[in-house]
Nucleic acid binder design. Structure first.
Lengths: 327, 327
DNA sequence: TTGTAAGCGTTATCAC
DNA sequence: GTGATAACGCTTACAA
């Protein structure tokens, strides 16, 4: 009458064997051939599926990993979620997804919920320092808030350097770095550092504007650009933006100002966002290896030996032209 | 030494009350005020969290819903996932996400896994007929494969009509409907039906090209357009594409052919995809109410009374100009 | 090898 | 109102 889901007991009865024997069959523990057959047959007949959570109650493993992201609406986060989900599935794990809108309370709340749901670990791209038990494996993306929590990120510093080198290679002589993003520190801050370091070394003039989300509107960037214009010309000829989204906005502003990209000024973004999740790039950009990052997070989280986990893993980025540079 | 997660027993001991009392406190069952305080204090001190799955073992509820999508890389799917996740969180449910790449085996496999994980229900955008137990609540998006499984979709038919009416209102006299998509039938097929019905009624010439994904490359559309060109002019002046992605591709082809949008030909897409998951539209389009759809799916799935669930719920769409129409 | 029984953390049914 | 106690579906010694 209630829930007709068959249990191990049903299978045992159907197969005419003991409960323990059924369990063994489903755990790959050797059992008499004839018994195995009987059990498997009964299981198929009844459509039996092990209850992972009842099992977890005993084994303290649920084969479930919680993933905490600010959201899944932004293409880069979507790509992460997608690839993490697939990487987990390949290992026969399931993904419990939480979205937080970067809200500290929600983030912490998610962590608490994860404990209720007994996930085997957490992969989290979070912006706030969280309290998470020592016992619960945690891997951070782009950010680590505790010494023993490994962080997986793209090689943001290297990506910044690469962007600078590319722009110089493409003939730029006066660069700029533009940034928006969260105010809480993260690996992504190194994008600008890498970029500036190249400029310093090569003694290239580099204008910098770093802003935090919400601090002020897009008009700061407009003003910045205006301040660098004289007689309809921009004195900057190469811009590195901290994200593809910012690059897109900058392009719009430049268009309004009557400047052409890439003729008057070349732009390189960061992320490697593709239209419709698979079509062409929005701009010339430094591509984050989302799939590799996902795979690495999962590997790190599920590693048997958690004694010598690295604190930070930076994955190689690559440059791809996307129409906003001259090549 | 092992997992230090405190249990109800620990809380009971700490609070100096019986186990059952602790349980009652956490279930809102009336209990002596002084006891409640003691329990809550002990729980806080120990950092206790109920184990949802141990609870589920008894109650047959896990407060978990499985969501099955082809992937989460495409912006529309990402939006669905995002809003479903939030809608579930609002009801104190968690989301178990599975991605299938529309592969029938993987889809079925997900359903089986869901049974292992004892989700309370499934929300699925799937392309293949699945075998899913009568007992497991299921809500389909854009498709239903069984009479008793409710389907939530945008008003695709109405959207098609709206597109036709808009194009006519904008002065078009010779229309076309272009379509790609899965070969398996779904609610989305009605987009073209609605569009054509308006054309028929109003006696407007309407060229139609319906293709299935993978049947052939993008060149069919190019050929189609070429076949409708004479002396560098297109005899069609209004195109309705079954998705924004297709509209984007068509725009690219038109550009190659030297045709201008919206001057020479106006285009309306379907979906309402926004750049970077929140910026402007790609084209003039019929917007699917992703958030409402998500909310509706969750409502339907979690409805107390599942006796009179509708078979199909179509949510209202809206039109928004996005630069590919003249207004 | 196979069967038995004691938990895992929780809820629910009872006597008290 | 409170506190034992028997499930829930499964794993795992341990005994047969």
């Amino acid at each position: 009458m209630k829930n007709a889901m068959p249990t191990m007991k049903d299978v045992a009865q159907e197969a005419g064997v003991a409960l323990g024997t059924v369990s063994k069959v489903f755990n790959g523990i050797p059992v008499g051939e004839s018994y195995r057959i009987k059990v498997e047959e009964a299981a198929r007949k009844l459509g039996y599926q092990v209850n992972q959570y009842a099992r977890g109650l005993k084994t303290n493993k649920t084969n479930t990993v919680a993933v905490i992201l600010p959201g899944v609406n932004h293409p880069f986060f979507a790509a992460l979620a997608h690839h993490i989900c697939e990487a987990l599935a390949r290992r026969d794990y399931r993904m419990l997804l939480y979205v937080t809108a970067s809200n500290p309370e929600i983030e912490q709340n998610c962590v608490n919920m994860v404990r209720q749901n007994k996930a085997d670990g957490i992969i989290g791209l979070t912006y706030n320092p969280l309290v998470v038990g020592e016992d619960l494996p945690f891997v951070g993306i782009d950010r680590s808030f505790r010494a023993d929590i490994p962080c997986v990120a793209a090689d943001n510093y290297g990506g910044g350097r690469l962007a600078a080198e590319k722009l110089l290679e493409l003939g730029c002589t006066h660069l700029a770095f533009l940034r928006t993003g969260s105010s809480s520190p993260s690996e992504t801050d190194k994008r600008g550092d890498g970029f500036e370091s190249v400029c310093r070394t090569r003694q290239i003039p580099c204008e910098v504007l770093r802003r935090n989300d919400g601090e002020d509107g897009p008009e700061v960037f407009r003003e910045f650009l205006l301040a660098h214009m004289a007689e309809g010309k921009l004195d900057i000829d190469g811009i590195f933006c901290s994200t593809d989204l910012l690059a897109w906005r900058i392009q719009n502003i430049l268009a309004e100002l009557g400047l052409r990209v890439p003729e008057d000024v070349q732009i390189i973004g960061f992320d490697g966002i593709r239209r419709f999740g698979g079509e062409e790039l929005y701009c010339s950009t430094i591509i984050q290896p989302a799939e590799k990052m996902a795979e690495t997070c999962v590997d790190l989280l599920l590693a048997k030996d958690r004694s010598n986990i690295p604190a930070l893993v930076c994955l190689p980025v690559s440059y791809a032209p996307g129409g906003t540079t001259r090549e």
